[in-house]
């Protein structure tokens, strides 16, 4: 059951992170292609966005390992 819990936690976390990161990076690349002069601002926004989106999935990974090994 621990393995199942870990698999669900990591799987759903990765799904959320993947969808979120995909949306952020796609919009950033599109913005950079349309307006190269705003690349700096878009880069900064992408950095903060990806960081915040990945926070919870990373905690999910840790909780998954706790469920697996304890």
């Amino acid at each position: 059951m621990g393995a199942l819990a870990a698999a669900i936690a990591i799987g759903l976390g990765a799904l959320g992170a993947g969808i979120g990161n995909g949306m952020i990076v796609s919009k950033t690349v599109e913005g950079m292609a349309r307006q190269p002069e705003t690349a700096g601002l878009l880069r900064t926004t992408m950095f903060i966005g990806v960081g915040l989106v990945e926070a919870i999935p990373i905690m999910g990974v840790v909780v998954a390992f706790i469920a697996l090994f304890q």
Binding site: T28, P36, A39, R43, V50
Partner: peptide, 9 residues
């Protein structure tokens, strides 16, 4: 992030 923006540029 820097690598991605350099690649796009």
């Amino acid at each position: 992030t820097l690598k991605l923006s350099d690649a796009v540029k």
